[in-house]
Computed example of a mutant assay.
Amino acid sequence: MALVTAAVVVLDCAEPEQLAAFYKDLLDAEETDASGNRVEIKGADGMRMAFRRDVNATPPSWPRPENSFQAHLDFHVEDLDEVERKVVGLGGRPLETKDMSGPYEERGYADPAGHSFTLRCVRSTAPKQG
Rank of each mutant, 00 (worst) to 15 (best):
A14N: 13
H76M: 09
S101F: 13
R85W: 07
R52E: 08
I41V: 13
P60K: 01
L19S: 05
R123K: 15
L19H: 13
H72N: 14
Y23G: 13
T32R: 09
A21F: 01
K42V: 04
G36A: 12
D45I: 00
R64S: 15
T32M: 07
P65N: 12
R48T: 13
T32H: 03
Y23T: 13
E84Q: 15
L90G: 04
L95R: 12
G89F: 07
V83A: 02
V77N: 01
S101A: 15
K86H: 10
K24Y: 00
L119E: 05
R38P: 01
D33P: 00
P16K: 04
R120I: 14
D81Q: 07
L73Y: 01
E15Q: 08
A34I: 06
D54G: 06
F75E: 10
P60L: 07
E66T: 06
V88P: 06
W62K: 01
L95T: 10
G108D: 04
L11A: 10
M100Y: 00
G43V: 05
T125F: 08
R107N: 13
A126C: 00
L95A: 13
V55I: 14
E30D: 14
D99N: 15
W62D: 02
L73I: 13
A71F: 07
G108H: 12
T125R: 08
R93S: 02
R48K: 14
S124D: 11
A44F: 01
R52N: 03
L80A: 06
